[in-house]
């Protein structure tokens, strides 16, 4: 598929054009955090971000969502639809987009399809913004992806470092979005060269590496290793690593009620919490931070691989950057490797 280019000052026009048909979500800055919000004008977009603090997974799998409401013991009627308009997520990073391929395996599996996730996923176009400034904590290249990864994207947009963006359609829907107006023009030879150079530079910037080859087998052998005693020591047992993680998808179903009525809610939950596996009888199969941290690592690098053939990590580095006690997954993987 041949690439397109668009001048940076034309981008707003293009997005405004698309907003007629779509709700456009884009990175917006507020309170020192960059996060995805629906925008009313392209001027709201904050481009100077490395990546958002929270992952955009909550646009598909919200932290808390109502499954159904009830009043006086009666369930209320189902909602017909979750999305009023199809959405575009603009400038999602390739790692966060790639993550949706993993979540698809869980929520859109062969046996049970989660209607909420699936509807949001189907109604959303992903316009990726290639990562030209990866961070020191990024290790996507170790996770069989990279800063220009196209998995799950409809469009890949690349800042060429001059006055224009390179735009490549990945899917038919992405192609349609390009074809909606005439602001985009065919990329010239110079643009293509620049693209290749930008890509190479970005990939070279990623110095962090972990080795996932053979990791699954290694983990099989060290379930009862003393390694876990060591690595969990400083863990506070909070849920930052799981709640800010791209791929973590555990949840709880719970009922909330006030006088006027109640709701059954699906809410994120974390394997780092003691209550996650606490049974009504008082029995808890994962009794301390040690078991819980082992579960987190095992789930990503062993169990998920066994069940879905892929590692449940995209190398975004959020867990590393945001851990209050600087627990570093790269280091843990290294230690496992050394065992």
């Amino acid at each position: 598929m041949k690439g397109k280019v668009i001048g940076k000052e034309q981008l707003a026009g293009w997005l405004d054009n698309l907003r007629e048909e779509y709700d456009v979500w884009a990175p917006v800055k507020g309170n020192g955090l960059v996060s995805f919000h629906p925008i009313n004008s392209a001027s709201e977009i904050y481009f100077g971000f490395l990546n958002t603090r929270k992952t955009p997974k909550d646009l598909f799998f919200p932290q808390s969502e109502v499954l159904f409401s009830f009043r006086r013991g009666e369930m209320e009627k189902d909602r017909d639809t979750l999305l009023e308009k199809p959405r575009i997520i603009f400038a999602i990073r390739p790692c966060d987009a790639q993550n949706l391929a993993l979540l698809d395996k869980v929520f859109d599996s062969e046996d049970y399809q989660d209607p909420y996730y699936v509807e949001r996923r189907k109604g959303t176009l992903l316009f990726g913004m290639a990562c030209t400034h990866p961070q020191t904590t990024c290790f996507c290249t170790s996770m069989r992806a990279g800063p220009f990864e196209k998995t799950c994207l409809d469009l890949l947009i690349v800042d060429l470092g001059n006055d224009r963006y390179f735009v490549e359609a990945v899917t038919e829907q992405g192609k349609d979005a390009i074809g909606k107006n005439n602001l985009l023009e065919d990329a010239g030879e110079k643009d293509t060269e620049r693209l290749a150079k930008t890509k190479k530079e970005a990939e070279e910037k990623i110095k962090s590496k972990i080795v996932i080859e053979g990791l699954e087998e290694k983990l099989d052998k060290i379930f009862d290793s003393s390694l876990w005693d060591r690595v969990h020591q400083r863990c506070l047992g909070c849920a930052i690593c799981t709640y800010l993680c791209s791929t973590c998808h555990c949840f709880a179903l719970l009922d909330e009620k006030v006088d006027s009525g109640g709701q059954r809610i699906r809410s994120w939950d974390s394997c780092m919490f003691p209550g996650f596996t606490l049974e009504a009888s008082g029995h808890n199969p994962r009794i301390s931070n040690k078991e819980r941290m082992r579960q987190r690592v095992m789930h990503k690098f062993n169990y998920f691989v066994k069940n879905f053939g892929q590692t449940a990590c995209v190398g975004c580095g959020r867990c590393i950057r945001n851990c209050p006690v600087n627990i570093d997954i790269r280091e843990i993987i290294q230690e496992i490797d050394n065992e």
Binding site: V106, F107, S109, D111, Y112, D114, F223, H249, C250, F251, A252, L253, D269, C271, F276, T277, L278, E279, A280, P285, Q295, M298, H299, N302, Y303, K306, N307
Partner: peptide
């Protein structure tokens, strides 16, 4: 076996024993 469960359909992620 018994475990705490929320969804019952292999999505909520808590009742696993190993994989």
């Amino acid at each position: 076996l018994e475990r705490r469960m929320s969804c019952g359909i292999g999505k909520c992620g808590r009742c696993n024993i190993s994989s």
